[in-house]
Design a protein around this nucleic acid. Structure first.
Lengths: 213, 213, 213, 213
DNA sequence: CATGAATGAGTGTTCATTCAT
DNA sequence: TATGAATGAACACTCATTCAT
């Protein structure tokens, strides 16, 4: 089953076709507005006014307001994912790759605090989040880490006695754990330090022959 | 100036009089509903329906919806504060008292996760939070810590070269920092470990004759 | 049929009994509030707060809010009427009596601008004013003038060819005509000048042997 | 600065576009209802029901209930103003023009009693009337008279020793003084007589070569 | 004589969403 | 592709009024 994106599948709309101007304007308007206020207090009227299009156009392109949010969110998720993919390709060794993924996750969260906030706080409280399309995307991202870990286990770089899934959960949990307060309390985040610390902990913990200090 | 509680001061209402059943029902209804959804998406009608009273009764006893929230919040804050007060009285030494306060703060946050969530996340995003009555209450609590620190500085247990206020901010910040992710990600919190760790860090930092590394 | 006054007839309440304190307080509160704002925007709660009694007490003594207004209004009407009665008794000649009535009407309107405003503007817009108790009282007052005119016609002081009722309507109309703008536009009123002018007009118009200029 | 009319400026709405049917229906509904009851006791629901549209549509086209009233009021004011403008153009001599203006004011007030009532009674009691948009419109109208008076002073037809502004105030005051009771007491108004009288008074008072008594 | 508790029916206003063109 | 018109369902909050004591 393909991942839904909150977009309406218009008849005759081919995948190759670029998004029409109105659709892009709407998505950008939401992005802009999200910098100022939270999703719930942004009205359709505001989105229309900001994007300079008619209110009804939102519902031509998106199922509903939340569908639009999802579209914007998923675009951001997909972009950051493909960026990580790109950087991973030019990195060698599961070792280095893991560090890169961690750093990039911190970096993306930090650079896109609005989305990070929505992703980490708002969407989690949506009723039925785990059935949502956003959840599917987030899962997709965690699979990327999972694959990396499995690869490391297989080629003998990581320990065999801890399941890859548990490793992944720990890593993702740790990242979110570190980033969350900085988001909510609006504090700066030292990405490099965070990455290094987390990495060192993982190194001494999950690597096969961890060099005990 | 007394701290306001969002309650309406009914004529001739004496402090000795217990709250009328309707008022209690309403407060309980909000508490119940807050377990399921966030404050903003709880409607007056829902509160009335849940408490089994008329919608208008909410506004007889509370200034507005936010006033009701504040009442519920402040009750919880005052209770936990007096509890800490009680435990502090039977504890001796600024040293032990500080530890006790930290532990209790963690414990109360952990035991009242709904309120903790509201206090740490929701109210912070209220426009004009710093002018709100809830802020006044939170401030009152932080003063308790401040006094403790000042006492410690005076009797020579804590360093003199760091202002008590900065110490307090650090402590509160650290506690919130540690508790936040567990709240949002719905994870268990090891209170004892958290207390011990934070306490050790503070000990090496703020005590007069800390063993400098 | 006795004129109703908006008061509730309490069982066993004898006419000789003076009004209980609560009832008086309520009436006074309304009078006070009417000086500041119009009747519709005065709430029962406000009346209760101002009078220092319980809201429910209003409904013990008066049928409803309008009943209370009527009570206050009618009291004022009856007082001014009996005052006029008194001054009429010590005045002789229909001629002088008419002038006295006119002057007193102006004077009472001017001295009780709030009531005047209600009487002349507000109550007229009540649906079913002409069936109202206030109308009955106003009618009672106009009868006083009518009787005076009839007396004058009978004893030959006033013309016989104009009906007393038309005379009365003209007089009342003229008075209201003159007083209204000063009430609405909040201007001072020269009572003596008004009386004199109106009186002169009436004299040259309706008196039998009007001295034609 | 253009005079506001209480209308919401819809995006891309050009002046050439006629008002949509819903908007017209709403305005007409208010006009109809104003014949029966005063503005404050007309509810949004009633307006919607009378016009046969949805309640929300009122707030799409008008800022709020008062905005709608202003729209209706201003339309009437602008119409009567342009009508007077038209008649003034084919009248020559400040002398005749003044008489025309007076007559027309009486006539419009008389022909549009509902509006007249609102303008002269209701709006005056609005808190902050002098900052309202309606006041701006009324002011605009009085300026028309002011200009006329200034013109007369300059060309020597009117006295130089009384300020144009005072003349204007006197005239407007007199007109309102004369029209008010007929409005409130629902009486007929003899426009020609009123005009003639007022005009004669003004003539003997403010004209340069008035026949001093 | 008086009150505290409680309520039914609104009150203006907002908002996501649909429909015809 | 895009829009102007229109709406159903809610929303927080208010008020005159009643009832039991």
């Amino acid at each position: 089953m393909a991942i839904q994106t909150g977009e309406k599948s218009l008849p005759n709309q081919l995948k190759e076709h670029a998004d029409p101007p109105g659709k892009i304007k709407i998505a950008n308007a939401l992005k802009t507005l999200l910098k100022e206020k939270d999703f719930n207090s942004i009205t359709s009227a505001e989105i229309a006014a900001t994007s300079g299009v008619n209110e009804a156009l939102i519902y031509r392109y998106y199922k509903d307001k939340r569908g639009l949010l999802h579209h914007v969110l998923s675009k951001y998720l997909r972009e950051s994912e493909s960026q990580i993919d790109f950087y991973l390709q030019e990195t060698h060794g599961t070792f280095s790759k893991l560090k890169k993924v961690i750093w990039h996750t911190f970096d993306t969260y930090d650079k896109n605090r609005i989305f990070a906030k929505i992703l980490l706080i708002e969407v989690r409280n949506f009723p039925g989040y785990f059935k949502s399309e956003t959840y599917a995307l987030a899962k997709h991202y965690s699979m990327l880490i999972l694959d990396l870990l499995k690869e490391g286990i297989e080629n003998g770089e990581f320990r065999k006695d801890i399941s890859a899934w548990h490793m992944m959960q720990t890593i993702i949990g740790a990242i979110e754990h570190l980033i969350l307060p900085s988001l909510i309390l609006n504090r700066k985040l030292d990405i490099d330090a965070c990455t290094e610390n987390l990495y060192q902990i993982l190194k001494s913990g999950i690597f096969k022959d961890g060099n005990v200090k």
